[in-house]
C-alpha cells in the first residue's frame, strides 16, 4: 500500500525533518507512528498526502510514485485517502451534515448518492442526530467523529490521522481509537501519528517509533513504553 524508500526531507529553512527513512505498510494494516514533537511524524504523513515531496528517496502509494504526480492531478490523488487532524479541520461555517457532504460534493457525485453516503458515514460515527449542529456547538470528541465521518465518507482505501486524540480527554481518546480500529477492520489501511501513550499501549497494534527524523524501532503489537 505504502512504500517509503530511503527518504530524507530537508525543509527550506534547513531543518532535517526526516533522515533516510524506510517504511512499508501493507494493505489493511493499522500502524501507529509515535515519537516526541518534532520527531518527524507529521512530515511522514505529509509525504503521503503530497503536501511535502521528498528531498531524496521515493514515496510509493498504491504503486504510484507520489513525487511524479503532476500538480493538477494531486486533488484526484488525495481523494483516495481520508485525512483526520488534531484540530479536527471542520469547516466552521458548515453544519455537521454539510461538512461530511462537502467531501462528496467536490467529487461531483449525484445528490442521492451524497445523501446516502453522508447518512451512512454519520451513522457509523454515531452522530447522525447532530447533523444540523455547527462545529462550534460540538464537544472535541464529537468534532473528531465528524472529521472521521468526512474522511471515510468516500470509502477511501487509506486513512491518515495526525494526532487525532491530541485535544481529547483519555476516555474520549479511547473511543476515537476504537472507532479508527473499527474502520480498519472494515478493510481500510490506517496510519495514526500520535504520542498518546495511554491509548497506544492498550491498542496492541504495530508501532513505528521516530526520533529526530529516523525510525528507531518498528514492532508489531508494540507499546509506547520504549523510552530511551
Amino acid at each position: 500500500m505504502i512504500e517509503i524508500q530511503e527518504v530524507s526531507v530537508t525543509y527550506p529553512n534547513g531543518v532535517h525533518a526526516l533522515r533516510n527513512i524506510n517504511l512499508r505498510v501493507e494493505k489493511g494494516e493499522f500502524v501507529f507512528l509515535v515519537g516526541a514533537t518534532g520527531a518527524g511524524k507529521s512530515t511522514l504523513l505529509k509525504l503521503i498526502t503530497r503536501e511535502v515531496v521528498p528531498t531524496t528517496g521515493k514515496v510509493i502509494v498504491a504503486g504510484r510514485n507520489v513525487a511524479e504526480i503532476p500538480p493538477h492531478e494531486v486533488p484526484y490523488y488525495r481523494r483516495t485517502m481520508g485525512v483526520v487532524f488534531q484540530d479536527f479541520g471542520l469547516l466552521p461555517n458548515k453544519t455537521v451534515w454539510e461538512n461530511v457532504a462537502f467531501a462528496l460534493r467536490v467529487l461531483g457525485l449525484p445528490r442521492k448518492e451524497i445523501r446516502k453516503r453522508t447518512a451512512h458515514a454519520l451513522e457509523l460515527v454515531g452522530l447522525l442526530k447532530r447533523c444540523n449542529s455547527f462545529p462550534a456547538q460540538l464537544s472535541g470528541g464529537e468534532a473528531q467523529r465528524v472529521a472521521i465521518a468526512r474522511a471515510i465518507a468516500n470509502d477511501p482505501p487509506l486513512l491518515l490521522a495526525d494526532e487525532p486524540t491530541g485535544n481529547l480527554d483519555p476516555d474520549t481518546s479511547w473511543d476515537i481509537m476504537q472507532l479508527l480500529s473499527h474502520i480498519n477492520i472494515r478493510g481500510t489501511t490506517v496510519l495514526v501519528a500520535s504520542h498518546d501513550k495511554y491509548v497506544i499501549d492498550r491498542m496492541r497494534k504495530r508501532v513505528v517509533m521516530l526520533e529526530r527524523g529516523t525510525i528507531i524501532s518498528d514492532v508489531p503489537c508494540g507499546v509506547y513504553a520504549h523510552e530511551p
Binding site: Y76, R78, R79, G89, L90, L91, F102, V106, L107
Partner: peptide
C-alpha cells in the same frame, strides 16, 4: 485560509 487547506486535502480541485 484554513478552509482552503482543508478543501485541498479533501481533494477539491483549485477550480472548485
Amino acid at each position: 485560509r484554513r478552509e482552503i487547506r482543508i478543501m485541498q486535502l479533501i481533494g477539491a480541485t483549485s477550480g472548485t
